[in-house]
Amino acid sequence: MTFSTMLSTMADGMLKTGAIFFLTLIGSLPLGMIVALLRKSRFTLVRGIISVYISIMRGTPLMLQLLVWYFGPYYLFGMNIGNWRFPALIVGFVLNYAAYFAEIYRGGIESIPVGQYEAAEVLGYTKTQTFMRIILPQVMKIIMPSITNEVITLVKDTSLAFTLAYQEVFSLAKQISASQTSFMPFVIAGVFYFVANYVVEIAMNRIEKSMDYYK
């Protein structure tokens, strides 16, 4: 196999890695916020369910969760899981990352002084307005470093998709390495993850900088 064939084969895997990465963020960033808000729900039952959900997501390996999501429907309900591989992967990633993001959001929300809520309430802001206009922008600034950490972890975690034999860059690296008895695919994968994270870092730095206009 020529180097360029290797690269172009793996480029396909990079696109798939990118798909996992972006779909996970698109799903888990908002879902994490919903989870964080539900965690503060008035209803004990809701709070209980959410806190169990968060402990399971954080307390078990993501690889295991992916297997459960993929094979669960068959073992529990005898369903045909033919086209379920990629959806299961995304569900697994989104729910796992939402739990982590939820905890980050919660920390951020709790760090906003109560005076901010009171000032908004006295000025007549509705609960939604208070959250969207006053609280959330401040939370975002506070949590951005933690979010950056998670996003970087996510780039690397996408490789866990090999568990479900999804042909992302790491699975391909393993396969090509096996067939070519070469380490080069792993080097390519390593460079890819490094560059991807470098881009993530630059992007996140920009976002953090854009929030630097106040203290």
Partner: peptide
């Protein structure tokens, strides 16, 4: 209401 701690919106 004017608060003791001002409670301006920092952002």
């Amino acid at each position: 209401l004017v608060f003791q701690q001002f409670n301006l919106f920092p952002h």
